[in-house]
C-alpha cells in the first residue's frame, strides 16, 4: 500500500477532490480492471461483494476484528473492511477467487478439504488468503509461529488444529 498510485492529473497537476456523491473508481482485481461508480466512503469489501459480485471475502465483523474479509493488496494480506475502495486505485487486489490462476484449486484449498479445516466455512476464504500469504512470508516454520501469524483470522467453529494441519501440509509439499 505504499507504492505510488496512479496519476490523477487531468490536464493539470492539482489533484481533484472527489465525492461525496458516487465517483468513477477503477479497481484492478485478480488481474482484471473494473470501472465502478461508488461513493468515496465505500469499503473495498462492499465494492468487491456488492459491485463486483466477488463474494468470497466475507463480512464478519466489519470492524477489523475477525479477518473474514482478508484479501491481498499488492500481494500483502490486508483487511478489506477497513480499506476504502477509492484508496486502492493503482494497486492490485487479489481475492480468494483469484488465488488460483487456472480452474484447479490452489494447493491450500485442496489441503483445507483434505484436512477438514473448516466446519461452517464462513471464515475459510479469509483463512486461506491469510495462510497463503503466511507461507509466502515464511512465517510457518512451526506450530507456535503459525498460531501467532494466523491470529488475525478468527474461527468460531474452532477448526484451528485442522487449519494448522492444512498449512503444514502445503508447507511440507516442496
Amino acid at each position: 500500500m505504499s507504492s505510488p498510485g496512479p496519476a490523477l492529473a487531468r490536464g493539470d497537476t492539482t489533484p481533484a477532490e472527489r465525492g461525496p456523491e458516487a465517483v468513477r473508481v477503477t479497481l484492478s482485481v485478480n488481474g482484471t480492471e473494473h470501472e465502478i461508480h461508488i461513493e468515496p466512503r465505500v469499503s473495498l469489501l462492499d465494492a468487491l461483494r456488492e459491485r463486483l459480485d466477488l463474494t468470497g471475502a466475507k463480512k464478519g465483523c466489519d470492524q477489523g476484528t475477525c479477518g473474514a474479509c482478508t484479501v491481498w493488496v499488492d500481494g500483502r494480506r490486508a483487511l478489506a473492511c477497513l480499506t476504502l475502495a477509492v484508496t486502492c486505485e493503482g494497486h492490485e487486489i487479489t481475492t480468494v477467487e483469484g488465488l488460483s490462476a487456472d480452474a484447479e484449486p490452489h494447493p491450500l484449498q485442496r489441503a483445507f478439504m483434505e484436512q477438514d479445516a473448516f466446519q461452517c466455512g464462513y471464515c475459510t476464504p479469509g483463512q486461506i488468503m491469510s495462510a497463503a500469504a503466511l507461507l509466502d512470508e515464511g512465517h510457518a516454520r512451526d506450530d507456535a509461529e503459525i498460531k501467532e501469524w494466523m491470529s488475525g483470522n478468527i474461527c468460531r467453529c474452532a477448526a484451528y488444529p485442522n487449519i494448522r494441519a492444512a498449512i503444514r501440509a502445503v508447507r511440507d509439499q516442496t
Binding site: 498510485g5 489533484p15 477532490e17 465525492g19 461525496p20 461513493e39 468515496p40 466512503r41
Partner: peptide
C-alpha cells in the same frame, strides 16, 4: 458512516 469527499495528495507540502 457519513458521506465524505476524497483527495489523494501527491506532495507533502500540498497535503
Amino acid at each position: 458512516m457519513r458521506t465524505i469527499t476524497y483527495l489523494r495528495a501527491t506532495d507533502t507540502a500540498g497535503a
